[in-house]
Design a protein around this nucleic acid. Structure first.
Lengths: 159, 159
DNA sequence: ACCACTTGGTTGAGGGCTCAACAAGACTCT
DNA sequence: AGAGTCTTGTTGAGCCCTCAACCAAGTGGT
């Protein structure tokens, strides 16, 4: 069953700029990473996820979920980060199949070095163009949309 | 000069879901295309741009701008669309370097066939989770952010 | 204990995308 | 007209990503 009604003018006015943002913004941020930090946006996301992990480490499959990357990709990205000394991979004691990844000291400081510049870009490209009220208002709306995109049903996905 | 202040709670509440949306939504939409229409999201974007062109055709370099893809990519995508009979590429009369792309009849009907299903996804993943007021409110805000991302500096965009 | 099934991770193949290098047409200045 | 420069598009190299096939380890029923 397919919807044949086109977008309304208001929907169009949301969808057009949103597609633009979705395509352009990641590229802009990626540029910063490769040019100034030596890690990719994906690397960064992995490092952030690990730094925020409750216990200091994350199973590869959980890392995949956290970053919305395929397990296949995570496997390679983590290997690459290990090779660069930013992450450590340890076979899980209790489950011979699993592996846990955690930040090395070097990874932690690489993250600390990349973080401020990244935030500056996020500000200059996004938040500098929004009023405080808009920012406040947008959070819950975006959270709702993001939650609906999560595969395991439309869970509220508390952050 | 780098900003060392972390994101505020409100900014965080915007940025987290937004990154999620930016990474997940395109994938979800892409899946629809490959599974049900035989064209990619990129193909679709190109077809849409052509269908909306004033004169019915677009220079490749303008097509690149319209789609936010590299000229290199556009060159190959258009070739592939030509090969599949959806687009026609004609050398420009007045400028021997340039080429103009336009939809074929087959391309136009492919687009017509893909459009409703795509819209249905956009609705089910986005607009169904927004109130009419939210949609009305979001348009101008997103337009502002998108405009700031355009390279030709519609905005001061300090680099 | 055994066999089927599930789960976690790795790897090969292949498409999408960009950058850099290039060819060729057009423009400018003398 | 000719040299230098800019613009348009193409192509090769190479990264990023996913899917499918695979192996190895755990789980459950008999």
């Amino acid at each position: 069953m397919v919807d044949r009604v086109p977008l309304s003018r208001e929907e169009e006015a949301v969808w057009r700029p949103l597609t633009r943002i979705i395509t352009v913004l990641p590229r802009v941020l990626e540029d910063h990473f490769v040019n100034e930090t030596g890690i990719s946006m994906t690397d960064y996301t992995v490092l952030v996820s690990l730094s925020e992990a409750e216990e200091g480490w994350l199973r590869l499959s959980d890392l995949a979920k956290a970053t919305a990357l395929s397990l296949s990709r995570i496997s390679r990205v983590v290997d690459s980060l290990v090779k660069r000394g930013l992450v450590e991979k340890v076979k899980c004691e209790s489950d011979g199949r699993a592996a846990n990844a955690s930040l090395t000291e070097s990874g932690r400081s690489k993250l600390a070095g990349a973080y401020p510049g990244h935030l500056a870009r996020v500000r200059s490209h996004l938040f500098d163009h929004l009023t405080p009220e808009e920012i406040r208002g947008a959070g819950p709306i975006l959270a709702r949309v993001a939650a609906a995109l999560e595969p395991d049903g439309a869970q509220p996905c508390p952050e």
